[in-house]
Amino acid sequence: MGITWVLVYPTPEGKTHNQALEDLGKQLLAMGFEKDQPYTVECETYFPVFNLPGPPKIFHVILDSDRPASCFLVPDKDPLGLSIVAERSFMGFLGKLSKAYSAKKSTNVEVKGTSYLFHDFTVRPGVLTIMGSVRGIVLETELRSCPVLITAVELMKEFVNTILPTPIDAPPPFLSSRIAAGAIPVSHLDTVLQYFDMFKSVRNSMIPK
């Protein structure tokens, strides 16, 4: 498990997201990347069935097809402090809670694409869909050889800027707090929480519409 950066890949003007993803795939192959396998990252949100006094306790379940044995439970409040990594079989237990919690299909978020390999990097570009409508392209970059976030910030920036059409000069916003925390080894939860952070902001950006 190496460090990951989850970023928005800006779709160029006059192109659909799917066209842009296709072009990005071709670009990666031209750069010497190797096509690996398809992947999906899904997020379901669970709401309490009964309205109890106080703010509703909402939580999210995130699944990653490249981590087929795990499921990630992320509470709406304080995801960094209270998230849980569980076995995939925990999903069966969630079914038993259906009388108290239920998932709203309307809020499902999904990222779907193909992963590519380049030396010790894994790149996963995919289209982000909410309720069946394509909202953009997500680019996840993993440096499999490096497990410490703080040490490779500049290196990762150099790498993602060779792919992105417009260069970035800072790591993903969610990571800044993690980097500030010091040289802690990363886990899959760090990746999942970056997806979650992005899903939340995409969803919020939809609300005014």
């Binding site: 380049f118 030396h119 990097f121 910030v153 500049e154 290196l155 150099e158 790498f159």
Partner: peptide, 16 residues
């Protein structure tokens, strides 16, 4: 290893 650029070319990565 991952936090120092190359003395000669100044880059972090060369051929990945």
């Amino acid at each position: 290893l991952f936090s120092t650029p190359c003395r000669r070319c100044g880059k972090y990565l060369d051929n990945g």
